[in-house]
Simulated assay, not measured.
Amino acid sequence: MVAQNKKAAIDSLESRYQRCLAKSQYMYGCALEYYRDLDSMLDLVYRQLYSKLDTSRRQNLMVQQSLWKEKKEAYFKLLDTRVEKLHKKTLAGLDDQVIATDHKAAYIKDRVTELISRYPTAG
């Protein structure tokens, strides 16, 4: 039941994001809000999981999260570098930022979904 509630919350964020984008007004703001909401959800899910696991599983979760963060930083740096290069060549720099932010949000959403699936009863 807990995992279903979290998945429903993700679906709700996704729906709100899509409605915001459909308005075609300040799409970067839509993407940024969606990213921040998912990042907050990731933090909440992680903390809830951590508090409910035994010592061994906590340690495992910490190691996994640390490795994930390293990959995330590398991926985000790649996205930011790409946006910076494109921004200098095109007038659509803000569009590139929207796309990069959307990709970052999707990366975080995948992690939240993975944590919920891997630990469905802890949280």
Rank of each mutant, 00 (worst) to 15 (best):
I10Y: 04
R57K: 13
L86H: 10
Y50Q: 07
A31T: 00
S24F: 10
L79A: 10
K6S: 11
C20E: 01
L44I: 06
E14M: 08
A74G: 05
L86E: 14
E70A: 09
L94A: 09
L91W: 07
L38V: 04
W68G: 01
E14Q: 11
E84C: 00
K88Y: 05
T81F: 06
K69V: 01
M41G: 04
A74F: 01
R36E: 05
V2E: 15
Q64D: 15
A74E: 12
E73Y: 09
V63C: 14
L32Y: 13
Q48S: 10
R47P: 03
Q18Y: 14
S24N: 14
T90I: 02
L79F: 10
N5E: 14
K69H: 07
M1H: 13
K88W: 04
K85R: 07
R57P: 08
K85T: 03
K6E: 15
C20N: 03
Q18P: 09
A74P: 01
L53P: 01
S56Y: 12
C30T: 00
V63E: 15
Q25R: 15
L78T: 06
Y35I: 00
R47W: 06
M1R: 12
L32V: 03
L67H: 12
A9F: 08
L49E: 11
A22C: 02
F76E: 09
M41V: 01
E14D: 14
A8H: 03
K69Q: 08
R82P: 02
S56H: 11
Y50R: 01
F76N: 07
Q59A: 10
E73A: 11
E84F: 02
R36V: 00
L67V: 06
V83G: 11
K71P: 02
A92D: 13
I10D: 06
Q59I: 03
Y75G: 05
Q25N: 08
N60Y: 11
V83C: 07
L53V: 00
L38E: 12
D11L: 14
L91P: 02
S24H: 15
Y35N: 04
Y75M: 11
M62K: 06
L38Q: 08
L78P: 01
A22V: 00
S40W: 06
L38K: 05
Y34N: 03
Y35T: 01
Y34D: 04
Y28R: 13
G93E: 03
K85S: 07
L49N: 12
S40R: 11
R36M: 02
S24K: 15
M41Y: 04
Y50L: 09
T81E: 15
L42N: 04
Y50P: 02
D80L: 00
C20A: 03
Y28N: 13
Y26A: 12
A92C: 09
R19M: 10
A22Y: 02
R47M: 06
R82D: 12
R82Y: 07
E70W: 08
N5H: 05
T55K: 08
K6P: 05
S66I: 00
